[in-house]
Design a binder for these strands. Structure first.
Length: 428
RNA sequence: GUGACCAUCGUUCAACGGCUAGGACUGCGGGUUGUGGUCCCGCAAAUGAGAGUUCGAUUCUCUCUGGUCACCCCA
């Protein structure tokens, strides 16, 4: 009978499986991040992957790319309009308000990680399902927190073996000072609108601040002369920004004052930053970004609450860890291989495995395999120092054979002495 | 969303439009009795999907899907 061709399933575009051979990197990164975040006083929070779509429209901003053209919408049978989260912050803000965290001692410092979803054209390091690790601090406007978050990132990157980290930083001001800056910028560009690219012409109308991150060649000279936000900050914002920079100086964290840094989300105020990795020849890779968002909680219906946070792109960080050949511990550290033969051997072997485990001796095994040859082969592959052989005869005698894999010398010992015997041998 | 390039076993590399789509690595099983590495043997495993041209398509054309790169934007 001819084989009927079955439909072959593929993972959806821009989504992939995180495979065992890569898990070492992911694990190291997540574990390091989790431990470090807790050391910095952050507590873990996990929010739903689906949220009310409006939360992002109002939180992240209706005019932002990730909301206006990259959101996955989900309509429930009951008629609710939900969306797959394109970023983490709005969900955490919602959780902060909904769970009354405003009534706990402030600041509230939270961290999270998990998948985010953005509908766009995939590319290397760019996925429709991407993983982010984020920190958020609520209820304190101190510049020291802005610095502390950057310090955390810097610390984390160093801990997972990534150097060449570069921080771009800027201040976007606040509702008091930003309008006057926007006006100055617009005045400047209106006089030069014939010389800029079509995109910039559109930006003049729709989103003036975005003029600053135009990459078009012909716009660069104009951009370079454009008024900078930092020169238009109000007293409070200038003081805040100055403090952040002073803290960074004190921490000896290198940064680059980038007056054209804008960021794609609407809710930022004051400090914003992006973290890049600098390749020798390769262009910079953005690994994360964040900033202060003192108005977001209020915008979403809460009491006015200052906040600051960061999101880090785990996919890209893992890519770099691989590229930089960061050392990871790979899997369990098997000390022995447990070879079993026959029905009795299997039963006793299962029990012996547990006994060894309790004694802290990790045993590799292949219980489902019957042939001793195949098991020995595996033992060799695992590179263990000893094989423990437990067959029919040993099961009856309550003994087990310890085989030194290098010398091939074997010794039969009673089962209840195996642990002691192994420990003795490992000490040598 | 736009443009360019790409698509063969799990991986990697072959096959002038024509034999049963081949090799290497990996995997699984063997090379007598209960013992690994080297070696030898065997087995399994692929033309991304669908149309078209053709006597005949892995090969040519189109569509779709996916990947890579750029734009956009960012993580």
């Amino acid at each position: 009978m001819p084989k009927k061709k079955q439909k072959e399933f593929q993972s959806p575009k821009g989504m992939r499986d995180l495979l065992p051979q890569d898990w070492g990197f992911w694990y190291k990164l997540i574990k390091t991040g989790e431990d470090l975040a807790q050391d910095y006083g952050f507590q873990k929070i996990e929010t739903p992957i689906l949220e009310d779509a409006d939360l992002f429209v109002r939180g992240t901003g209706a005019t932002t790319d990730i909301v206006s053209k990259q959101m996955y919408f989900v309509k429930t049978a009951g008629g609710a309009n939900l969306a797959l989260r394109p970023e983490g912050t709005p969900g955490v803000v919602r959780a902060y308000m909904e769970n009354g965290m405003a009534s706990l001692p402030q600041p509230i410092k939270l961290f999270y990680y998990g998948p985010m979803f953005r509908y766009e054209q995939p590319q290397a390091g760019r996925w429709r399902q991407l993983y982010q690790f984020g920190l958020e601090v609520f209820g304190d406007s101190g510049a020291v927190l802005d610095a502390q978050i950057i310090q955390f990132c810097f610390h984390l990157f160093r801990s997972v073996g990534l150097k060449k980290i570069n921080i771009h930083i800027n201040s976007l001001g606040c509702p008091q000072c930003r309008p006057s800056y926007r006006k100055a910028l617009l005045d400047y560009y209106r006089h030069r609108k014939d010389k800029v690219c079509p995109d910039c012409k559109r930006r003049i109308k729709e989103n003036p601040l975005r003029l600053l991150d135009c990459k078009e060649e012909k716009c660069q000279p104009i951009k370079a002369q454009a008024p900078a936000m930092v020169d238009h900050l109000c007293d409070e914002c200038r003081k805040h920004f100055k403090e952040v920079l002073e803290f960074l100086d004190e921490l000896e964290i290198p940064y680059f004052l980038n007056s054209s840094l804008v960021r794609g989300l609407d809710y930022y105020t004051k400090t914003i930053f992006e973290i890049f990795w600098d390749g020798e020849d390769a262009p910079q890779i953005a690994l994360g970004g964040g900033g202060r968002y003192d108005n977001l909680v209020k915008e979403l219906g809460g009491r006015p609450t200052p906040a600051v946070g960061v999101g880090l792109g785990l996919d890209r960080i893992v890519d770099l860890m691989k590229k930089e050949q960061v050392k990871i511990s790979v899997g369990p550290n098997f000390k022995v291989f447990l070879v079993q033969l026959g029905a009795m051997g299997k039963k006793k072997g299962l029990k012996l495995f547990e006994k060894l485990h309790q004694a802290g001796i990790l045993a590799a095994e292949s219980m489902s395999r019957d042939s001793i040859k195949a098991q020995m082969k595996l033992a060799d592959k695992y590179g263990v120092k000893f094989a423990l052989i437990l067959g029919q005869q040993e099961a009856l005698d309550n003994t087990v054979i310890i085989r030194d894999m290098q010398s091939g010398v074997q010794e039969t010992v009673p089962q209840d002495k195996v642990v002691d015997e192994l420990k003795k041998r490992f000490k040598k």
